[in-house]
Every structure is written in structure tokens, then in C-alpha cells.
Design a protein around this nucleic acid. Structure first.
Lengths: 339, 339
DNA sequence: TTGTATGCGTTATCAA
DNA sequence: TTGATAACGCATACAA
């Protein structure tokens, strides 16, 4: 009786079932229709289960050239939005026996590594957020199937695209605020060079076009952080005349805006309304809770993974746009003096 | 001139350098001391760089039985603490050409795969948070090197352990509050069955022992969420007599406590002080900012990865305890009536 | 100091 | 309907 058995191989299964190794492979990969008798197939499966057989992934991958692994390129997982993106992508991946590996953000200390040099696993494809700008260079021309998240739909490359309808989110926000009587808006914009923020600005101007009486001011936050948001909001709120509502590109910025308002002795939403984008956990952690455009992060991640699987299956790259929804909460209210 | 070259193999490098494939392997794996001349080594490296050679990981792994991949088992990446844990672990891993793959959270949508189904061939080791309780069963007895994060140091298994000094964090919190004149504390505890929360309770009682005059009440939040924290805090704050300070097991709970206070018409910190654990981004996003025990999440992840590498290198499993620090911010202040 | 040969576990092409 | 057998790309014992 053997004591320290090593992991059973397909040969062990073959031996146990009294068949050849090739038959085992056929049966277990479910490609035995009309090639192997149902009886032998059953006995192979029984033997495999009996022995607790698991295929060796390295061997499988070496032989097929496929890894069932996708790379997800995002700026930082500590931003909840990207963590949720990952959750969605990993969920769909798991359903298809795929794995998701993350490109470690280079914005931390240390030089940026080439994601393909050090990616631990060989990859079958890449899902990249447009916000991970610094990695996009390495991405181009490496021949891997690519799905872009939140990138300019006008880009005419061969990548599949998954977007969220940011323009509609901005429209909903503007309609909400104008309906509350606001006629002087501040745009707290993220000064991050990425399409996802450019489109917010464009959509805001577009949404304001039918309302020429509405005034718009703008301030940029150099990063997506509460602290920088606070400072940019401060500039907006100390300008004369002061906006009665601040539209922020992101919930973190909105949280910073609320802090700025309070430090200036302004009440939210009585003196100034604040809206955000994302609907992170943060949005309901602060007081008052944030009115914000809920972006379907998990769904976007899931859609991106599905798009990648489709491309891998030979389908033509497509572009999907996911709907968004304005969530009205306590941080927005009627404009001061509005009946 | 070849057009669609496939990825160069070590044989291509050998051919280009005019040596055998074995020599390439020796040189590139840096095991050529006294086996290959410096000149040939150089020419091999030059050829490899020239061709852009990258070793095929599947082949490497198949041959060596090693994967240079660690599994990180955490409850959810959408909790910033675990996202930071991952960041720290992935950073150290990358320095050692290791990868980190995440255990797909079973609480998400879609069925969770058994991460250990092919683990024996896909993984070299496991890093597991004690909070990922549901996965611990599968972990035991699978023979993989294991590093436990935030687990009972008294557990006498063969796992290496990395802990943060939660007991000291609790001591610092209690000292801070007692120094501010608080004599009636509320403990907003996480009702999550995990050592990391049990030790908070124990340490709190321990820290209070030298101060028999201090009264302690307790409420449990069924989950780590702002909403549940709010409800548990509500119970604490509507009890008679009412605690003047709430010690929360976590920043999310603390944020909920602040909301509860405000809804009850209580000011933070004038009427009630609130402290948390973790020092998430949330802590400085809310107003007032949270006094909280900063847990070195990245460092813990990094330490865990280092511990795993040490075990893999044959060292005996050790236990590390990382120091923590109370960060005093606006959510705590003198007890009402304290001079 | 360098080259040859072998096998890791799998899938896929054949021949039986 | 099944079974030999040949790669996949690499690392290493051994021969030269």
C-alpha cells in the first residue's frame, strides 16, 4: 500500500479504468461523442472521481497554448469602483473556468513593469480600463484580444468595448438639479487625462445647451481623492457669485466637496447641493448621503469578461453601453430661494 | 524574412546564440557558475534580449512542478482593507517574480469554484485571512504551505502567521478616551465569527481592568456595513445612561455610529465620541474625520507574502506581529462636562 | 566548458 | 471504438 501518493495523472486514471490515456482525455474533455462507448466513458469518469483526478493545468496549457486566464488592467484596486469591476469580471470568468489576474498598478513606488513580462501566467486576453493610461502603450500591438472599458467609442481599433452611459448620467443629473431650481452650477472635474472624464465635461455642456440661462463654473481636482476634491470645491464655493450646486465627477470628489462646504459654514443641501458619480459605499457612509449616478461596476466587469470570451470564441468585437441611474439622496435639494 | 513569427522559444535563442538549448536554460536561470564561460553567457543573454525571449511559464511549471503563484483568500476585495492587503502581497510577489491569484469570493454572484480543484498544480502556497471563514475548511489538509492573516496565535498548526497588534490598538484607544474623561464606553462590536473581532473584545476588557470605574456596554452589528453599524449604534445611544464614547470594531461601523448619533440629534464629538479600526479612506472622507486605529494593511499583505516565500525556501513557519497606531482625529473629544 | 537526451502531463493525430 | 505515439517548451542528469 503506497503511502505518499503523488497527484494522480490521466495515466493513473487510464490504468484504473483499464483504458488508454487518450481515451481518458477524450472522455474528460467531453469530446467522445461517437468515439468512445458510453460504457467506457462511464467507467473512465468513475475512475477519475474515485482517484480524485484533476488535470494538470500546466500540461494542459503547454499542450493547448491556452491558459484560460485574462489580465485585468486597472489603476488601483483600492478604489472601490475597480474592485467591483474585478468582482464582476472574476465572477463571469469563474463560470467559464477562467481566471483573472490583475495588473499591479505602477503608480505605487517603483518603476512600472511591463505587464506582459512579469504576468505570472501566460494570457489569453486583456481587459483594460481607459484610466490605466500608462499601461496602454504596452497593450498595443501585442496581439492579445483586448476589451476596453470606458474608452472613446470613436476609437477605431480592433478592441471590443464596454462603456457605461456617462452622458446619460450627466443628463439625468442636470435635469434633476435644474428641476430643483438651480441656475448656477459648479463642475468639480477630475483632472485625470482619461476619456471617462472628458465625456463627463462634454455631456455636461451638451445637457446645458437647452438652458442658456444656466451659468456653469469649473474647477479641476488633480486627482481622485477627497482631499483634492475639497480644495477644488473650495475654489468653486468661494467664487462670486457662488454656485448653488456642485456636480462632481466622482463620489470621492463629492465627499470632498461636502467637507469644503461645511468648513465654509455652508449647509448641504440647504445652501449648496452636491452630486457625484459611481455610487460607492462611501456615498451612503457620509452624512447627508450623496445623490450620485450609480455606475454598474460589477455588470461592466462581467460584460467585459463576456466580451472577451466572445472574441476568444471568434466573434467580432462589439461595443456595449450599459445604462446608468441617478440615485437621489440627501445631498441635493431645492436651490436657495426656490419655491 | 518571416512575417508572423510566433513567440521565440529557448531553442530559438540557442540557435541565435550558436549554443545548445541546455546552455540557454542554464544561463537564463542564472545557474551557470563554472559551467558556462562568461563570453557565451553574455552572447546568450544578448540573443535573448534581441529576440524578446520570455520563458513559457506553462512549460517551466510543468517541468519544475512549481508555479510561482500564491493564492490569497479574502472575503471581498470591495472592502478596502482587503484590497490593500492584496496590494501589499502582490507588490512583494512581483519583486520575486511571483503572482497572486485571488480566491473568488463565494458570496458574489455565480457559483464559486473550488480553488483547490487544481490547486496542487496551480499553486505553490496560500495566504488566508481568518475572516474568510468559509474557505478555511477546504484549506486544511491540502498540503499546501499556508500563511494565516489575523488568526489566533495560540492555534498550534503548522501555518506561519502574520498578525496586527489589535490588542495594543485597543489599549491605545481606551487610553485616549479615558484621558479625555470618558467613563462610560460603548463597544460597537462586529458580530462576525472571526478571531480578529474576538481579540478586540478581549483586549477591550483587558484594557479596562485597571479602571474599574469605567462602565462598558456592548452592541453587535451583524455585518461590517455602515447600515448595520448605524442600527447597532442606535441601540447603544438610546440606552440609559447613554455612553459618551463608542469604540467601533471597524471604520464602516464607526461611520454608521456617526450617522446614528446625528439622527438622534447628538453632535460628534461634543455629545458622543466615536473611534474606529482600520483607517480606511472612509475615515477622512466623513465629517468629522474618524479617530481610528491605523492597521498596516499593505505591510501585512507584504509580510504575509514574505512569510510564504520563507516557508517555500524551507524556513520554519514563524509568527509576526505588526505594530499599529491610533490616529487622533475629529470624531473624539473630551467627555461632556469634562474640564 | 558545452552538448545530448529525457521526461514533466496533456492533447491530438494517426493507425489498428 | 480504441490505443500507440508524437509533440508542447523547458530543466537537468549525464556524456563528451
Amino acid at each position: 500500500m503506497p503511502t505518499a501518493r503523488s497527484r494522480p495523472t490521466s495515466r493513473d486514471v487510464a490504468r484504473a479504468a483499464g483504458v488508454s490515456q487518450a481515451t481518458v482525455s477524450l472522455v474528460l474533455r467531453d469530446k467522445w461523442r461517437g468515439r468512445v462507448s458510453a460504457a467506457t466513458a462511464d467507467s473512465v469518469r468513475a475512475a477519475a472521481r474515485q482517484l480524485g483526478y484533476r488535470p494538470n493545468l500546466a500540461a494542459q496549457s503547454l499542450r493547448t497554448g491556452l491558459t484560460r486566464t485574462a489580465l485585468l488592467v486597472v489603476p488601483a484596486l483600492t478604489n472601490e469602483f475597480f474592485a467591483r469591476l474585478h468582482t464582476g469580471a472574476a465572477g463571469v470568468a469563474a463560470e467559464h473556468d477562467f481566471g483573472v489576474v490583475l495588473y499591479p498598478s505602477p503608480q505605487g513606488i517603483g518603476r512600472a513593469r511591463d505587464p506582459f513580462a512579469s504576468a505570472r501566467t501566460a494570457l489569453d486576453g486583456v481587459i483594460a480600463s481607459s484610466m490605466a493610461a500608462e499601461a496602454l502603450g504596452a497593450l498595443s500591438g501585442n496581439g492579445l484580444p483586448l476589451v476596453m472599458l470606458d474608452s472613446d467609442p470613436a476609437r477605431t481599433d480592433s478592441a471590443a468595448k464596454v462603456n457605461v452611459d456617462l452622458a446619460d448620467g450627466m443628463r439625468q443629473t442636470v435635469a434633476h438639479l435644474i428641476g430643483l431650481g438651480h441656475r448656477h452650477l459648479g463642475h468639480l472635474a477630475a483632472g485625470v487625462p482619461s476619456w471617462t472624464f472628458e465625456v463627463r465635461s462634454e455631456a455636461l455642456h451638451e445637457a446645458l445647451r437647452p438652458s442658456p440661462g444656466v451659468r456653469l463654473q469649473r474647477a479641476e481636482s488633480p486627482s481622485l481623492s477627497v482631499q483634492d476634491g475639497l480644495q477644488a470645491a473650495w475654489r468653486l464655493l468661494t467664487a462670486e457669485p457662488r454656485p448653488t450646486a456642485l456636480i462632481c465627477d466622482d463620489d470621492l470628489l463629492a465627499a470632498g466637496a461636502c467637507k469644503a462646504a461645511r468648513r465654509l459654514g455652508l449647509r448641504v443641501p440647504d445652501d449648496v447641493s452636491v452630486s457625484g458619480f459611481d455610487d460607492l459605499g462611501l456615498a451612503t457612509a457620509v452624512d447627508p448621503e450623496l445623490t450620485t449616478v450609480r455606475l454598474p461596476a460589477e455588470e461592466a466587469g462581467a460584460a467585459a469578461m463576456r466580451a472577451l470570451l466572445a472574441v476568444l470564441a471568434g466573434e467580432a468585437p462589439a461595443t456595449a453601453v450599459l445604462p446608468v441611474e441617478l440615485v437621489r439622496r440627501g445631498s441635493t435639494g431645492p436651490a436657495p430661494g426656490w419655491i
